[in-house]
Design a protein around this nucleic acid. Structure first.
Length: 274
DNA sequence: ACAGAGACCTGCTGGC
DNA sequence: TGCCAGCAGGTCTCTG
């Protein structure tokens, strides 16, 4: 379930429990994630202090400062990962791959059935290959319609692929790309280079609105999630098109269409989106 | 340089 | 009831 709002919700949930805490113990039960978890990770960060939990795109950046090393844990939740705060001593379950035990008794527990996530270590994260060429954050002022317009000139690629490209803007995952295109009234297959500036203004606003609304709703489930367990479904009720193929468009009532683009389910209204 | 497909994994659902 | 194909919120990497 990790799209950008989920990752931000996770960041806000774990930060107060981890920041300024000493890492007492690191347990890697299964380090076979998207890339292998570094073997020396426990040696590097045990005894060190977590100074801050940041986010860039869908990466959580856990800043660590210690005598052995000072650097950043680059954590991605992949398709199925979750990071939870455990305050009791409950036994780990299947797919609980990594745990950080903090000196305040809290355990940070990483679960990821599909193992598409990652835990990497970098002392120079700004220039790390995963982070170096990312586009702007969608909620930052520098992301706007003018930017989309400028970067899209001459591009034949469908606008949905264009806004899901992390070099253009980060955080527009499949769900939110579908939602934002519907809100902006733009057909997902339209060539990115053939969309006007004013329509890109609408699209940029739609991306910002959709993501910030979801972050707000994620915030409401923060408590559940901290106490473990945390399964939302919270934003699902307000989805306009995603998961609603064949059902009536909330604007015009015509049946929503469902197609595959780049192996991803794409839902749109053939009447409202041009 | 670009666009699209393949790859990485496990778990769940729906159709036969 | 049981089995299997197909699909799932991501994104790097390869191919043409």
């Amino acid at each position: 379930m990790p799209e950008l709002p989920e990752v931000e919700t996770t960041r806000r949930g774990i930060a107060p429990h981890c920041e300024h805490q000493v890492i007492a113990r690191v347990i890697v039960r299964d380090g076979r994630l998207r890339w292998p978890v570094p073997d020396n990770l426990p040696a590097l960060i045990e005894g060190a202090t977590i100074t801050e939990v940041d986010r860039r795109a869908k990466y959580l950046l856990i800043r660590v400062s210690g005598t052995a090393a000072t650097g950043t844990l680059i954590v991605h939740l992949g398709m199925s990962g979750s990071l939870r705060v455990i305050t009791d001593a409950s036994e780990p379950l299947i797919h609980d791959h990594i745990e950080l035990w903090l000196q305040n008794g809290v355990r940070l527990r990483f679960n990821d059935p599909r193992r598409f996530g990652c835990w990497l270590w970098s002392e120079t994260p700004d220039s790390h290959r995963l982070l170096a060429s990312l586009g702007p954050e969608p909620l930052a002022p520098e992301f706007n319609g003018a930017l989309l317009y400028r970067l899209s000139r001459g591009k034949q690629t469908p606008v949905k692929s264009f806004i899901m490209d992390n070099r253009i803007v980060v955080g527009a995952g499949n769900i939110y790309a579908n939602e934002a295109l519907f809100k902006a009234g733009i057909h997902p297959r339209r060539a990115a280079g053939r969309i006007s500036l004013s329509r890109y203004h609408r699209l940029a606003e739609a991306i910002k609105e959709t993501l910030s609304a979801a972050i707000l709703m994620g915030g409401t489930t923060l408590r559940d999630f901290v106490n473990s367990d945390g399964k939302p479904g919270y934003f699902a009720q307000s989805l306009l098109v995603y998961g609603r193929g064949g059902e009536p468009c909330r604007e015009c009532g015509k049946a929503l269409k469902e197609i595959r683009m780049n192996q991803r389910t794409t839902v749109y209204c053939g009447h409202c989106q041009r």
